[in-house]
Every structure is written in C-alpha cells, then in structure tokens.
Design a binder for these strands. Sequence first.
DNA 1: TAGATTGTTAATCGATTAACAATC
DNA 2: TAGATTGTTAATCGATTAACAATC
Lengths: 227, 227
Amino acid sequence: MKRFTKHTVKNSLKRIFLYRASLTRMKLLGVEKIYSYTLSDETGVTPDQIRKDFSEFGITGNKRGGYDVNDLIDKMEKIFHRNKDHNLVLIGMGNLGSALSKYNKFVHKSMNIVATFDIDPFKQKIRSDIPVYSLSRLKEIIDRFKVKVAIIAVPEIAAQEIADDLIKTGIKGIINFAPVLLKTPADVIVNNVNLCDELESVIYYVHNQMKSDSAKNLEQLYKGTKY
Amino acid sequence: MKRFTKHTVKNSLKRIFLYRASLTRMKLLGVEKIYSYTLSDETGVTPDQIRKDFSEFGITGNKRGGYDVNDLIDKMEKIFHRNKDHNLVLIGMGNLGSALSKYNKFVHKSMNIVATFDIDPFKQKIRSDIPVYSLSRLKEIIDRFKVKVAIIAVPEIAAQEIADDLIKTGIKGIINFAPVLLKTPADVIVNNVNLCDELESVIYYVHNQMKSDSAKNLEQLYKGTKY
DNA sequence: TAGATTGTTAATCGATTAACAATC
DNA sequence: TAGATTGTTAATCGATTAACAATC
C-alpha cells in the first residue's frame, strides 16, 4: 500500500557521520589514537554516548588503549557500504540538479552518478561529464547500471510522477529535493531534503533565541539541541 | 567559548513542517476543515501526536469541530516568523551557491537573499538577479540589510574562515553546506546540510533492508523510522 | 441532547546518561 | 601491578502513546 512516508535517519547513525567527519579531520592533523573523551571534546557528544554508539554498530576498541583512528574510519566506511560501488541516477537538470551533478566529484568515489535525466531536449544536448538522457530511457539505463538509489531534483509538480516511474523500474531509495511528500510503497526509502525548511528552522531558532535575553532562558532553548 | 556544534532541529518542529506541507496541499484541493485523524492519514503521524504537537506550539482547534485549514496554516506561518521579512546573505557562488541563489524565487517571499559573496572577481561580474560582492564588503552589506542568517556554500577549506568572518559581523544563524564541523560560539545556531551524508544514509537503509528478505526483518528495520 | 473530537494528564516506551565490572 | 579506559548493564530522562475528561 502506498502512503506518505517521511523517513527519519536514526540519531545514532547521524552521530556516526559526525564522528567520521571529526576523525577524518584528526587523521589529516596526524592523530593516530583517540579515546572516547578525546572524540567527545571534538564532537560535543558525551564519551558514554560515543561508546554506546560504537557498540550499537559493532565497533570495538582496546581497553586502556583507546581507538585507532584509521581502524575507526575503516569500520565506518564499511557501515556506509563504501567498500562497494553505488550507481546513482539524477532526475531533473535544472539549477539544483546540475549543481548536484557537478557535486559528484567532491563526493566519495564509491558513489557515482552514472546518468541524469530531463524532459527538456535542450538540456539533453548540453555538454556535461555525465550524460543527460530523455526520461523514456529511464528503465533501460537503471537496469543496465543496476541502480538502486535515485536523486529527484525536478519541480514540485513533477516529483510524484517521477517517483512512480522510478519505483516501477525497481528503485529502492530516493533522495527527494522537491518540496512534496511522495507517496511510496513501504519498502522504498525516501529521504526528503527540503532546503527551504532547513533555512526556516534556522530562522525559527535564531528568532526564538533573540526573544530571550537572559542566559538562563538561552540555556532553556538549548535543551532542544542534540548531538 | 567556541566549540564544534551540531544543532539538531526538534522532532516536533520537523513534524510541523510536515503538517504544513500536507495542509498546503489539502488547501489546494479545496479542503477547509480537518480532524486530527484526517491529517494523520495524510502524514502518517498518529492523531495523538498531532494534537500533542499542536498543543506544544499553542495551536488550538474546536472541540467536535476539528481544525480550520486556513487557520492552521496561518498559525504555522507565525511559528516560522513568516509574517516578518528575513534578509539573507549567501557566501560562495560556485555550482551549489548559484543554484541556491536562483532557488530563492521558489522560496516563500518572507525569505530574501539580498546579496551574495565570492572571492572570485570574475563571478562578481556575472549578471544575476542578486548582486555578487567581494568579501571585503561583508560587514557593510550585512549591517545595511540587518542580516541575521547566512548561507555558507563555499568549499570545505574556506568554510571556517567565512564562519568566523560572519560571526564577527553579528550573524546569529548559519546554514552550512560545506562538509565541515564549524566552530562557533554557543549563541550562534548552525544547521549543517551535508548532501553527501544524506545520500549515504539512503544507501545505508536501502542496503540494510535488502539484506533481509522476510517481512518480519523488514518490520524490524522500520522500527528506526519515525514520522 | 448524544456523539464525536479536542486538549491534557497518565502510562509506556525508547534513548540518553550514569555507573561499574572487565581488562589491557 | 596499578591505573585508566573500554564495553555493558542499570538508572534516568524525555518523547511518544494511550486514556479520558471537557466540551462543542
């Protein structure tokens, strides 16, 4: 049965992203060993929480000896399946779509946009590192490259139709930049990224913080802040 | 004291975004009155949770009569301070930055990017609806337009320096598209949007779901899904 | 009014935090 | 070894869910 789904990423998984970002930075600075309290200083997550998260994802260190930075990063790469290649397709080569298609280069090498699609035949002719196809070839390309995850960057009005098409081809995960709730079967993961909402939430917190002058009220507000 | 901060938006606030998206859609379809269970069908959030959230944000309906769609939307606009104008600046006019600057038009009228900045003098000359300034004019422009929130879309390497500059000018909220943890004072809200992480989390869930074939295991996985 | 739905209080569940035993 | 840090179990906290009294 199709329904509106808003998939929310587990907090612990989000923190793993945070740890990895911090660890990568520390590795560049030449750090080789860390303790849970060192990583805590860097990320703002409590040492207990860090160890709990590591435990959840089956990451172990050495009692007394802390954790090996390279080893930690390796284990996290595995969690994110970076040891395998992931072919992606991107639908919609408007402003955001073409920015994302170029973004590809900055992204870890295991993620690869193999094809982009647009209804506009003009955009299909624009020279680009990644080919731009007509939507009629969606199934063909997705099958050929065994694509499981798609990026939707089409206008609001077209998003549901594209999602339906993608699901018919067997796509199992969608990252959706269109500001609409997509109706999808329960076995399709949808991650909505709504840039407008993200901006508004900053405005919300900035404004509500500015209303209260005292440090105490500020503290109160920050209770809503998680790591 | 400066530290790494990763601000997480409250779940209840995220759900308010979800409700608004659904309500806006229903309004277009001509719906005028809804009940908590109607909205539940549309959003997948339980009626209890919806009423609890409404209560938290001071939104009331009519016992027996449900809620007026227009009234709900109005109240939510107030929550997001859409009744006021918000001037924004955007730093970094690369691929993503220029896409975001054009995105401006799709965004609610209360949010307005008044200026963009880039170190590249060439980009400063490109004709655009929104002027592109040199970074040397950051403080001048931010002061003039009373900007409180900035969008960072510069490369990883430059992000911290830009953040420092912005904070010196009195910026209180940052939406950061660079994949780095910014060190900021506690009274500055940072909302990190990491497109690579968002993609990886989809891959994570798709992959971990595919490993388990039985419906039961699938259900297990979905325990991590919140609305 | 009777019935249905809200708004809120109480119960449950899950996630975070604290504590500590295991151990390098 | 003694001391320090992990990994896990127990306690606490907060958020979600259920229940129900208020009321239109």
